[in-house]
Design a binder for these strands. Structure first.
Lengths: 355, 355
DNA sequence: ATGAAAGCGCTAACAG
DNA sequence: CTGTTAGCGCTTTCAT
């Protein structure tokens, strides 16, 4: 039973239905001006043969791919211990599915991978790209601009005017991004601690080569412009980094009575050190995180007060913006100019027991 | 500066290098029988024009796609609170990258999506598929077999002989899978508890429509063939499910002195209930999980003793098996017969404080 | 070793 | 409305 013959082609369907290839094509693609009896014959032939269009052939002529690349540029293991990107993916996937687009995942582990990604994007496999976790010195934006693929960034891109990809100036679309209100969320967190009567409020930052960390730090400074410099400790978004920073903090400022950690993972490290030193949370030291990453935030002891961002919605929105721009292609897909233009999603404070 | 012209084609490169398209093609694809001076001219032309092959055109003739679909069939939110699949993806991605293949992610949220996935797989977009999180009644295996795409399953497929996809009998390749030694890991966990002198050892199962849950239960039974039935409580791999099960357990068997939870998420729910009831871990009740999901397992109070499986390695291995089969396509890619054939990865007990 | 030519399967004018 | 006719950009015999 050598059923293993190659897939039926348009030609085969046309023959079976006794029509031309063009007619079959019309029916398969929505069947506009095709009279009903004919269309029906074609549909039956399609079913009987189990015909499925060959996407490569179709793309070759339409230049569309119904596929979007998702680029996650995280050299570190961190992302993978992090439900963050899973949630983004979920939001993206839902939206793409609604638009009949496929999700091509491009994970970059190191610098070597960047060239590969650039090549792929330039290869015209996809209709657009969604790019995450950019670091300040990341070569990716340049490669992407060069590839000439419509792109939406996740998180505010970090380049300053001078260091922006040069092609941008040449009239290319301005970078478009979706971000959370990191700064506002940080402000809310600090205000909450202040409202609790805390005086010595510290901040343990995230990796400052990412704008999310910078923005959260800025938010902290908005509320504590005159903070003792020793109350700001640089860290890296990881539990281990949080532990390290908290130890340093305790050594330098034993009177600290509140900590705003750059994310929940960091906060979990902070809590561990506090428990180890016999300090009570929140009585002795209040702790607040960022992300509302579940189940971690609920499972810590005590459960973590934190700033929630709607990660899945970010993903969904990114996809929607990309596809929206794609749909009206030919027109100006994005506002002109070189200044990043973006949508900023609100954050909300979630009160649990730690602050 | 209308640099926005369409990408250069082979033709353009050929013209620039003063050779034929065929020659350029040869150079681009490894440049076998092309004399060096010529090849060099071509390479320069490629660089100058920034030529990148159009994959659609290439696939159209080669019928290869250098792309693999990863299907994650998890209708529930659970996966996304779960670093599990992120780790799998990482392993897969690494391996695919090494083979110059792209990863196309297919997330199915509900039954409606299955048809879409089936269509995609049948559409010949990819060279193979990696499929996860199958449930016992999942229609996906059938669709996949019908699509005729080489496939490797993550986790032992759950169908029994009778309910196997019928096409399998027709001489198609047998299902191939990669799994962890769930049964062996469960046995090790229970033996550890026994070694601790525990007598009333309970098991809170995972969702029993997944083979991983069934296998862990079987492992438990191997060691406790005469267990009091009330010591086995069915659950669903979630923290909330773990809480529910633990409450039930405590109500029915107040003398329980050890719990083997089907995974770490479940164990975290168990710990929460225990803390709430004022029971000490491990003094009053020892708890052991499964997965070694970080950072959760380290962050619980007390840190969780658990059975580790190397999730990333599973992913890597799946990809390797698929691509290996692909490479020797034309031959028998998989052993004949309808019996699932698979590779089972070892698990190891990680001792922390909870047992 | 290189070039010429024939498609891969499909869509998109253009005729009729 | 439906069929005919060109290609899309590439690989691949087959000549040379």
């Amino acid at each position: 039973m050598t059923e293993a013959m190659s897939r039926p082609t348009l030609e085969a369907v046309a023959a079976r239905a006794g029509v031309s290839r063009a007619t079959v094509s019309r029916v398969v693609n929505g069947g506009d001006g095709v009279r009903e009896p004919l269309a029906e014959r074609v549909r039956r032939a399609v079913d009987e043969l189990g015909y499925v269009p060959n996407q490569a052939a179709r793309s070759l002529v339409t230049k569309r791919h119904d596929a979007v690349a998702v680029v996650i540029a995280e050299p570190e293991t961190r992302v993978f211990a992090d439900p963050f990107f899973a949630l983004q993916l979920r939001g993206i996937s839902k939206e793409l599915t609604a638009h009949d687009s496929q999700l091509v995942l491009l994970l970059t582990e190191g610098r070597d991978d960047h060239a590969r990604v650039g090549r792929y994007l330039a290869g015209g496999h996809v209709d657009g790209a969604l790019v995450f976790s950019l670091h300040l010195d990341d070569p990716l934006p340049v490669l992407i601009q060069r590839a000439g693929v419509p792109t939406v960034f996740g998180g505010r891109p970090g380049w300053s005017e001078g260091s922006a990809p040069s092609e941008t100036a040449a009239g290319a679309a301005a970078p478009v991004f979706v971000d959370s209100d990191n700064r506002g969320g940080a402000r809310a967190a600090v205000r909450h601690l202040v409202g609790l009567g805390r005086r010595r409020i510290a901040h343990i930052t995230g990796a400052l080569d990412q704008t999310s960390a910078v923005d959260r730090l800025d938010g902290f400074r908005d509320e504590r412009p005159d903070a003792d410099p020793r109350l700001i400790v640089e860290s890296d978004f990881t539990p281990a980094g949080g532990e390290r920073a908290m130890r340093e903090l305790l050594d330098n400022c034993p009177d600290v009575d509140a900590v705003f950690a750059a994310n929940d993972l960091t906060a979990s490290g902070v809590l561990r050190v506090l428990r180890e030193r016999g300090l009570r949370v929140p009585q002795d030291i209040a702790v607040i995180g960022f992300d509302d990453m579940l189940p971690l935030a609920e499972q810590t002891d005590p459960p973590l007060t934190t700033v929630r961002q709607d990660i899945e919605e970010m993903g969904r929105l990114m996809a929607r913006m990309l596809l929206g721009g794609l749909d009206r292609r030919g027109g100006d897909a994005a506002p002109g100019g070189g200044e990043p233009s973006g949508v900023v999603l609100p954050t909300t404070l979630v009160r649990r027991a730690s602050a």
